[in-house]
Design a protein around this nucleic acid. Structure first.
Lengths: 196, 196
DNA sequence: AGGTAAACACACCGGTCGGTATACTCACAA
DNA sequence: TTGTGAGTATACCGACCGGTGTGTTTACCT
């Protein structure tokens, strides 16, 4: 079995397995999708999956990591590093808006996984925790750069708006939730002493 | 089988079933808890559960409704109807803070259920959708009463902060997330023209 | 020519899932 | 007194779960 975490080189079949598992886990939920279905949809035998990934748990971790990586790339491609911190905060919410319109019909994969994987030590939970910390620190860094008073707290709040927008869009069906959150974030930057 | 939704009168065994199922569904997740375990923990046979509730799906719905009702009662007991709208918004976040410290170690039951129940027509999803709409409308009503400009939008944003605080507390482990959200909500009321 | 990795096919494992069937006891009320 | 509703005990159902074992084929590399 190849190390899923360290080597991004996957065999063609493993690549197909990860792609189809990601799709299935995200849209139907991790616990409701069996390995047999993943194998069938990937055009692969269960044997191959277990040879490449070792266990369902590890496949789940690979799925979460891959999806997180996709989101970070998606975001990075939409942020101009030369823009002002304030503009970069707005761009982050705009990226979330675009992301949700394209590939977020079922809410945040990390939050969903956290709900499904209730065993305290499950490594998938760790991935989700890291992802949420990263997001909060991202906003906090921007708040600090912007010269906000209490940048840590502001970063936390911006991350809350971010998460809340995902829930609003997913459950309540609020189409422009991310843009509403962007406006609120903008107002909060001002309230924290950041010049327009 | 008694109608679970219309008649709140439950037989003693049914009461025990609902209580233990609520505990188990919330802490371990709906899909990972089997009916056999619920029966065993409630000191009841599976037959009794199916006589009273009919199916797992209906038991899940009863669980979600009951938990939502508990939260609404909890909140109502902590809101002074004579206080100003601004104070009531703050009190709502404070109630969330207290609620999370007491019985929210696993995040929002509605969001979790939404993650677990991926089948489009599952009645449990409807309960979650109604709950989120109710929360948003609650905040929007307070924003309107406070005389905020764009009260609907502000209500949406306050609900986002609310949801985001739950995620922050649950996944990131931010202990005072709800109070941080309260401060942000307060600032946003001001930004929306509500006098201090 | 020989070795190795990747994938195949297929059968099988113990265990659990949601749900049902049968037969019995007990309390209470018409 | 005679039902009736609530509950118990136990056995059972087909389907599916995650995971393993054995052996075969294909293709590329040395």
């Amino acid at each position: 079995m190849a190390s899923v975490t360290t080597s991004p080189q996957l065999t063609p079949a493993a690549r197909r397995v990860l792609d189809t598992a990601s799709e299935l886990f995200y849209t139907r939920g991790i616990n409701t999708v069996g390995m047999e279905l993943v194998a069938e949809r990937a055009g692969v035998t269960k044997k191959t999956i277990y040879d490449r990934f070792g266990s369902k748990q590890r496949l789940v971790v690979a799925y979460l990591r891959a999806r997180d990586a996709r989101w970070r790339d998606f975001l990075a491609a939409r942020i101009d590093p030369r823009a002002t911190p304030r503009a970069r905060v707005a761009a982050t919410f705009e990226a979330l808006d675009a992301w949700m319109r394209e590939e977020n019909e079922r809410g945040c994969a990390m939050v969903n996984a956290y709900a499904e994987l209730s065993e305290p030590g499950h490594p998938g939970r760790t991935v989700a925790e890291e992802q949420k910390r990263w997001l909060r620190d991202l906003y906090a860094g921007l708040a600090r750069e912007a010269g906000a008073t209490a940048p840590e707290e502001l970063g936390e709040v911006l991350a809350m708006l971010h998460e809340g927008a995902v829930v609003a869009r997913n459950v309540t069906g609020t189409a422009d939730a991310a843009l509403t959150a962007r406006a609120a974030g903008n107002a909060l930057l001002t309230a924290h002493g950041v010049p327009e």
